[in-house]
Design a protein around this nucleic acid. Structure first.
Lengths: 177, 177
DNA sequence: GTGAACATGTAAATTGTTACATGATTAC
DNA sequence: GTAATCATGTAACAATTTACATGTTCAC
């Protein structure tokens, strides 16, 4: 299973980073496909530290609010690989967009248009993000995710601009006719 | 915001149903894009009943374990429409697949192949589900979701079968070379 | 000097899943 | 009669988000 701890280990396997940087990198790597809030991130890092899967620059003492850089340990690397090996090819989607569009016939025209515009705006943003780290050297795995993300965004954008918009128009016509 | 309560109201806006049926219909309509467990569903229905947004066949008394059919009220319909009007064009994805593939270079060959196979199997299942209710009469909104789902599945399947598989092979070659 | 971005962390509240407990109905 | 599917619900548990509290560093 890939959980927050595993994601942290994954990011750290590519180089040391602070908690703040881990979050930023996750965003850059996965765009909308994996997000963590600080409320999930820091407790996860604390556990990893306690179990010896990572070490921190300001290890002992040096209480709170001190910038601390985390580094993965050999134990952490083993733990990461064992998590990765048990990972499943799953994807959980919770689409507010789809849920709302399903009831498109009960939607106001403004809302219908706004929903499609919002989705398109987000998709274009995601697209840019995935293209962004395509250039950097990176691993084949990174390239895979970047391309996969772009392909999915592209498909969604094309659909919404073409057929999707047409269906929205059809609903309009039905309502008036 | 589209939450469990709103989804229930949405399903009930198309006809009355039991809790069990609501869950099944959500699955049929949205495939993997919206799921609810009974532990979330029944408490939500209880709240809707208490607030008068739905009524149940065995309204009063008739304690537990009695089959009860839920029907949306006028108040429920208003509530649904106001929820739909404030819906955002968002999509939250939590992709274990992408997270694992990102670290593909650190993956065993078996795992890499398995991940892609699993993802393909799921996508084909989703595809079949979306195609399934395409035939039924349904609303334009239903048609939209069905088509959108199919387009996204198709894009993902094509990518994984072609370029995706190729990248996986490239990783193999790199490791040996 | 001031606003933006960097940086860490906690606690309450929300939310949902999983497992459990129970029983009816239908098809073989 | 028995297995599968239909059917309702609760309670413990897990996970995460949101809001809060605090402070630093850097560019303009």
């Amino acid at each position: 299973m890939i959980d927050v701890r595993c994601l942290c280990l994954g990011v750290l396997s590519l180089g040391e980073a602070t908690g703040y940087e881990i979050r930023k990198r996750l965003k850059a790597y996965f765009g909308p496909y994996q997000g963590v809030s600080y409320g999930a991130l820091y407790p996860a890092l604390a556990k990893l530290l306690a179990s010896g899967e990572v070490v921190s620059s300001e290890a002992a003492a040096a209480s709170t609010l001190e910038k601390r850089s985390y580094k993965i340990t050999e134990k952490g690397r083993e733990s990461l690989h064992s998590s990765l090996d048990t990972a499943r090819g799953q994807e959980q989607v919770r689409s507010e967009f789809m849920a709302a569009m399903f009831f498109a016939d009960q939607l106001k025209k403004d809302t219908l248009d706004r929903l499609i515009d919002e989705r398109l705006a987000e998709l274009r943003g995601d697209m840019a993000q995935f293209q962004g780290f395509r250039g950097s050297p990176g691993t084949e795995g990174q390239r895979f995710v970047s391309r996969y993300g772009q392909v999915l965004c592209r498909a969604a954008i094309d659909f919404l601009q073409g057929e999707g918009r047409a269906i929205a128009s059809a609903i309009e016509r039905d309502r008036q006719g």
